[in-house]
Design a protein around this nucleic acid. Structure first.
Lengths: 355, 355
DNA sequence: TTGTAGGCGTTATCAT
DNA sequence: ATGATAACGCCTACAA
């Protein structure tokens, strides 16, 4: 290709490289590299000249090449098993990202959101150029986590636990139990649980633990939860709406709903109203998370609060320690508290009704 | 299930490379590469054997090295001038990300969120390993946009416009005008505008255009907006709360509030109530965006709706066209509609009051 | 079907 | 203070 193109008005065909700058400035590639990364080692004059030439040519160090030699990406990955659209439809994630973001920013790290590629998390992970992962919504024994660990990349597990990785959890069971007790104390005897949908087996997930908590809380009053009374739906407002409707269609007429996320709870309230039920007059609803929304909606939502933003911050803090201090560190396991916040979406049980 | 503990004791210090696999499998590096990227070109047997060996060694192609040769990152960058925490505190962004995510997922692209590093967008951009940028909240003449374009990376501008890049906008001015007219028709004469805070000069931003729309709508009724009656705040619920309070402290007693985002509007409603004002009894509030939240809060928010999710989808669609078909394409400029949605946060003006 | 060799663009090492 | 050269780890003509 003749370099006539260089004189044309159109943008240059090829991105300028370090060698181009070196040649144009009459120095070595090394010098150019120094000009950008370690100017102290160059005389004031040459450093300035190199910068000028680079600017003139529109040269910027190629970030990928730089990553390759530096062995650092300055990026943390947020790994979620849901597709991007679903994940962001849950306000919980945005709130968690606030926490991640606040700390990532202070450390100068960028945020890479990783969701399955064509349904495959493995492929997504293989593509990801990150210095470490914050993993949310994945069971601890998910094979991908083992694979990541084996490559030597730091991992912080959120809401699950294994011995060989940092983790940060909340008291899911206790929180769920408190929610159930609260409803029982209000006289409710007929329940539906709106659970978070997941393809993964629920052994070590929020789903299983919260369900345990609900069961335990109800059990104290001698109440058993029908298997059919646990309906699964996406952790979004729409998911909650659909789940409540589906329970209703299946013949359930609960006086109280235990929702595993605020988004689901909010959707359930919307669905209940569409059916003509009043909240909390006919149905009481308890959520989980205490997202900003919870206290703003009508009626303000009774919910199990967890420190979502702090959870994000802690996750990054742990990850940074792992990245900075190397992998041969003893894993740290953090547990954050939950607490029931009673607002107006729950009230005394109405006169008993079916099922 | 492998014994992780035992495994980690013997785990190699160094990540296995393609050469290690090649040697262990007794083939060339090419063969290993083929086994991962183009298995058809290998015999069934050798491909399987190579895979087995790779698996055994825990080998994964290094994503950065792969990017370097492929010249593709399979990642799109979302560029925002705000810090991560602030950006995610606005539900608008999560909604926009739903749109981005839906299409990014279908194209197999991941999402990289880029915010200023130590206050410098330039540094953040230089770090970013992406195939293209979706730029939101940045004026079209921001120098960084020019720099990105000069490197030849595709850019889709959201909410701003320049001739040499794709863009996608909404009718900000028309929407704002409709909001102002609506309030005027309800008899309001005393206004405060709650604007989105920005360090950038507002010439070609949503801020300037919406302000113009407000002014025009009010102007039709002969109403002028005091300069002091335009209060700026972060586009978050907290920001809205603070902005309303600050206006109130400054002595403003509007009967109507024009907020440039729903988050701000929701915060303003909260602040108004804390002060003892009823909405819409004492103060009417109009938002902008129509986020999910808008119809769920109490009272349901009158707002200027824009198709936020579709905006995200369109942005990725344009970006993909740009990435796939090369940069020598005529820029496409998309305009999406806005429309006023009247709910319950606006009502007739109360008997006239001060200022 | 498999192997060889060169390139991707940078930083790091070791001279000078 | 500056430069030559070797990594970094992979992909891909081209050759066999």
């Amino acid at each position: 290709v003749p370099d006539d193109a260089a004189h044309s008005l159109t943008a240059p065909i090829r991105r300028p490289r370090i060698a181009d700058v070196a040649e144009a400035a009459g120095v070595s590639k090394t010098a150019v590299s120094f000009a950008f990364n370690d100017p102290e080692r160059l005389s004031e004059a040459t450093a300035a000249r190199i910068r000028a030439v680079a600017d003139e040519l529109g040269y910027r160090p190629h970030p990928v090449a730089r990553m390759l030699t530096r062995r650092r990406t300055m990026t943390i990955g947020l790994l979620t098993p849901q597709d991007l659209a679903t994940a962001f439809a849950n306000p919980f994630l945005a709130m968690f990202c606030q926490g991640l973001g606040r700390l990532a920013d202070t450390w100068g790290y960028a945020l890479h959101v990783i969701s399955p590629v064509d349904g495959s998390l493995a492929r997504a992970i293989d593509r990801a150029t990150v210095d470490g992962f914050v993993v949310i919504g994945l069971a601890a024994d998910h094979p991908e986590i083992g694979r990541i660990l084996r490559v030597g990349l730091p991992v912080v597990l959120v809401d699950s636990h294994r011995e060989d990785a940092d983790s940060i959890r909340i008291d899911d069971k206790g929180g769920a139990k408190a929610a159930a007790r609260h409803l029982v104390a209000l006289g409710h005897r007929s329940f539906v649980v709106l659970a978070i949908e997941s393809k993964l087996h629920p052994a070590d997930t929020v789903i299983g633990r919260r369900l345990d908590g609900y069961r335990e809380g109800l059990g104290e009053a001698g109440i058993e939860l029908d298997d059919g009374a646990v309906v699964h739906g996406q952790a979004t407002i729409e998911g909650g709406r659909a789940a409540f409707r589906s329970a209703h269609r299946a013949g359930f007429r609960p006086t109280a709903v235990l929702a595993m996320s605020d988004a689901i709870a909010i959707g359930a309230i919307a669905a209940a109203r569409e059916i003509g039920l009043s909240v909390p007059g006919d149905v009481s609803v308890v959520g989980f998370d205490d997202i900003d929304l919870a206290r703003l909606i009508d009626p303000p939502l009774t919910t199990v609060a967890q420190p979502v933003v702090r959870k994000g911050e802690e996750a990054v803090r742990l990850l940074m320690a792992s990245i900075e201090r190397g992998a041969d560190r003893v894993p740290v396991h953090t547990m954050l508290e939950t607490r029931l916040i009673v607002r107006a979406s729950t009230g005394p049980a109405p006169a008993s009704r079916g099922r």
